[in-house]
Write a protein that binds this DNA or RNA. Structure first.
Length: 240
DNA sequence: AGCCAGGCTACCG
DNA sequence: CGGTAGCATGGC
């Protein structure tokens, strides 16, 4: 904790309580190219392709369930076919097709077909094309350069920066908004960048902490902040 | 059956 | 500037 202010203390208590309650969440999981299982590989250094997979996953899960929607789309991109793991033709085994170059070369109808289970597939196909171009152009990575990419807003940009590139940008999602305003740390009108500042100004900017904290907020949010009235059955937050 | 999901863009007043 | 319709699939 940087400060012993009310906000800093509350955020620290919140993090510790969430971690104790739920344990480490294992974000961000990747698709295993051999069996197409979605699993966390630990804190190993990510390859460039894995960074791209995380960025693509961040786009595919926009306003969409990770399981099974975004994951099935990712699996289909990895194996390059729509039929899942049972078909065994056309594509080499153990090969991962979820790369910037492959996405860039795919036709739009084909890309749309592959990512259909993720929903919003026509929009997201465009977004993935733009994302692939961004990676292929080797542009300088920054929040602003990401925000120029079609389909990448603040939350997706911060997700990519944090989980793919290990940079300490705190992610503000719908659950985090609801939880913070319920705790009384913020209000419903507080803007994204101001909410983000609450975390970065009161926590040490360590990427690992930010990753775990955000994943825990989502876990807790799914349980108690999915349906109104939000936080009705939330015991944890009452003792901060 | 309806509501919800790890949002973003485009357009409106 | 803030507010919102539209985007689409799958699970509960």
């Amino acid at each position: 904790m940087k400060s012993k202010t009310g906000t800093g203390r509350k955020l620290n208590n919140l993090y510790q309580s969430l971690l104790k309650t739920y344990g480490p969440q294992g974000w961000w999981p990747l698709i295993n190219k051999k069996n197409l299982k979605c699993e966390y590989k630990g804190k190993k250094k990510l390859t460039d392709r894995e960074k791209f997979e995380i960025a693509a996953g961040a786009v595919l899960t926009q306003n969409t369930n990770w399981y099974p929607n975004a994951v099935s789309a990712l699996q289909r991109l990895v194996c390059g076919r729509v039929t899942g793991i049972n078909a065994k033709i056309n594509f080499p085994k153990n090969r991962n097709h979820l790369t910037p170059l492959t996405i860039a070369r795919l036709t739009m109808p084909r890309l749309q077909q592959l990512i259909q289970p993720a929903g919003f597939f026509r929009q997201k196909a465009l977004y993935l094309k733009a994302l692939a171009d961004f990676f292929l152009q080797n542009k300088t990575l920054s929040r602003n350069s990401l925000l120029e990419v079609k389909g990448i807003g603040m939350e997706t940009a911060d997700s990519i920066l944090l989980y793919a590139f290990h940079r300490p940008f705190f992610i503000i999602d719908a659950y985090t908004r609801r939880i913070l305003s319920t705790v009384g740390i913020s209000s419903a009108e507080t803007k994204y960048n101001d909410l983000q500042k609450l975390f970065t100004a009161n926590l040490y900017p360590e990427a690992e902490l930010f990753k775990e904290f955000h994943a825990l907020l989502v876990k807790h949010g799914k349980l108690h902040y999915s349906q109104k009235p939000y936080g009705q059955n939330d015991k944890l937050l009452k003792r901060l």
